[in-house]
């Protein structure tokens, strides 16, 4: 059982590694994210930005009241960290969605699905494997960005800023929330991928799940919502339940017969 899931996961990840297009899609944005983030963060040291007016900073601080009292540059960097790290959490949503959209449709288009379905693999094993394989690259990008950011930020940001970036909220967000959110998007895309023979349609349906998550993350960026550890954990439990429900639905909706006989 685990052996079959692992076999498909390894094969799918090897496919990702063989695809220059996907690798480029994974690596280039990661590098760009980190570079742009560090440029933004280091801008805090520039005279023009450091000289940001008190009025403007107060306006920003209203969204993060606990930052009040920090030196101007640090307060500014701290605000930036919250926004930057939210961006890093979006990567694990969009990249898996793209991969998952092709998961079933791609096999069908390459005509490899029938031999695969003729093997003893069970539907839930296949879909779990496809989902896991789809989220791993996105999660890896998210974590790699986070790690690279922390290492490089340590050189230009103050210890207070680094402590904030390494705080429990962000650890829970990257360690737990991010994979669960990604699985949510992937499960939706897998459902779509097994119900339509157009990857674009699968992607659009998968994006339906991403929108509320993106809205939540955006609300954090703009200061409408503040994630703390308890909120993050509650969200994680909700996301986990939704993941299980969606994967269960995906297995129920996966109709081998329709896929084999109706798709052309």
């Amino acid at each position: 059982m685990i052996g079959r899931i692992w076999t498909v996961v390894v094969k799918e990840l090897a496919d990702v590694c063989r695809s220059r297009l996907i690798l480029t899609t994974l690596i280039v944005p990661t590098i760009l994210y980190v570079v742009v983030s560090l440029v933004a963060l280091s801008a805090g040291h520039l005279p023009g930005v450091a000289g940001i007016s008190r009025v403007e900073l107060e306006s920003l601080e209203r969204s993060v009241p606990r930052n009040s009292g920090l030196p101007t540059v640090e307060a500014f960097q701290l605000l930036l960290v919250d926004q930057i790290l939210v961006l890093y959490m979006l990567a694990p949503l969009f990249i898996p969605l793209t991969i998952a959209s092709y998961s079933i449709i791609g096999e069908k288009q390459l005509r490899t699905l029938e031999p695969l379905l003729a093997s003893p693999i069970r539907t839930w094993e296949l879909l779990t494997a496809k989902s896991v394989a789809a989220i791993v690259p996105g999660i890896a990008v998210g974590w790699a960005s986070y790690a690279a950011f922390l290492i490089l930020a340590a050189m230009i940001a103050s210890p207070a800023v680094l402590r904030h970036a390494l705080g429990p909220v962000w650890l829970v967000a990257f360690g737990v929330l991010s994979p669960l959110f990604a699985l949510l998007a992937v499960a939706m895309a897998v459902i779509a991928s097994s119900r339509t023979n157009d990857p674009r349609a699968a992607q659009q349906l998968g994006a339906v799940v991403i929108l509320p998550i993106s809205a939540l993350l955006s609300a954090q960026v703009f200061g409408f919502v503040r994630l703390d550890v308890s909120h993050a954990l509650m969200l994680a439990v909700g996301a986990a339940l939704a993941d299980v429900a969606l994967l269960w639905t995906a297995v129920r909706l996966f109709d081998r017969e329709t896929i084999l006989t109706r798709w052309r």
Binding site: K11, A14, D15, R18, L110, R111, T112, L113, E114, P115, L116, A118, S119, P120, R122
Partner: peptide
């Protein structure tokens, strides 16, 4: 059907091989 699938071999109309492997 899963047990049955473990006991059969199927050659489909198209070879259905992973071309990049």
């Amino acid at each position: 059907a899963n047990v049955v699938r473990s006991r059969i071999g199927l050659l489909t109309e198209a070879p259905g091989l992973y071309e990049r492997m």
